[in-house]
Nucleic acid binder design. Structure first.
Ligand SMILES: [Mn+2]
Ligand SMILES: [Mn+2]
Ligand SMILES: [Zn+2]
Ligand SMILES: [Zn+2]
Lengths: 150, 150
DNA sequence: TACAAAAAAGCAACAAAGTTGCAAAAATCT
DNA sequence: AGATTTTTGCAACTTTGTTGCTTTTTTGTA
């Protein structure tokens, strides 16, 4: 007896990963935790840095893909080559994402935020175009940056 | 005399490149032409393929950057790693882009379109957030794909 | 038209981002 | 605790994007 401590599970069944039907591993725990500790969205690169050199790059890619598949995180498009990811709010699940909020990209601090209480507006599309999914990206100055300094 | 044919210039001054203050070169001509022949948006990759192996990859990157700077094309964000580009409509210029249209990404044919006569809607943002620029991305089925077949 | 100056293209080398197959390790199930 | 399934790490590779430098092309001017 004495040590063993498989992965440090609080109780057992109410693990958020378990609930989504995922096995609980160190990298998944850590990456999920990073998202939860974070106000803004994270890129693959951000995670690599924040996690330290503990996990392989490939593991991070695969974990992000798994989280996407299970409806735990969603991808936020970007010009430039830096897709970012953020936690889903609740109605998402395996193979099914449903987001109605706006994404805000601060041109000062460069962070990306989910504006959780915003709603994507109704759009008028030309005849023949059928919308399935809408992403609204707003670039500007975030709350933090517009109050802090200048 | 006989041949020389510097770059095949129709008349001289009314070249769209000249008008934007750019020198006229083979790659700029060709790439601009590709955009004009095209209904949808083009990625760097698309251009590489359509241009054949005539131009160096680096030249294409630099040409795209130049066109962006001069307000000739605009970048369309994307999840996944494939930023696309499309011609600007007119009010754009050096260091200044102003677009009010919606971008439509067809999940069937995978093409990206500028919906030129659409308008980005007014948004209600939380207090403290100041919008500078808005991108609306709609994923769905395009006109072509929704009439053609099925 | 010819020449000098300025700009762009091509090349090479590199950096960053993303993918795949496979063997070892860890998590789960019984 | 042991067998089974899943995930991880590693290596090798592809794709995408960047930078410095030299050669070539374009442009403006004589
Ligand atoms: Mn979001
Ligand atoms: Mn457009
Ligand atoms: Zn900010
Ligand atoms: Zn289509």
């Amino acid at each position: 007896m004495a040590d063993r401590k498989p992965i440090e599970s609080t109780s057992t069944a109410q693990d958020p990963l378990k609930q989504k039907g995922l096995s609980v591993t160190g990298s998944r725990r850590k990456i999920l935790q990073l998202f939860m500790q974070q106000k803004g969205a994270l890129s693959h690169r951000d995670i690599e840095k924040k996690a330290g050199a503990v996990f392989d790059r490939v593991t991070i890619y695969r974990t992000l893909q798994t989280f996407l598949d299970k409806g735990i995180i969603h991808a936020i498009p970007s010009a430039g080559n830096a897709v970012r990811y953020a936690l889903c709010q609740g109605q998402c699940g395996p193979g099914h994402h449903d987001h109605q909020h706006i994404h805000f990209i601060c041109s000062r601090c460069k962070h990306t935020f989910c504006l959780d209480h915003s709603v994507t507006p109704d759009l008028h599309l030309p005849k023949g175009y059928q919308a399935q999914d809408i992403d609204v990206l707003v670039k500007g100055v975030c709350q933090q940056c517009s109050t802090t300094s200048k």
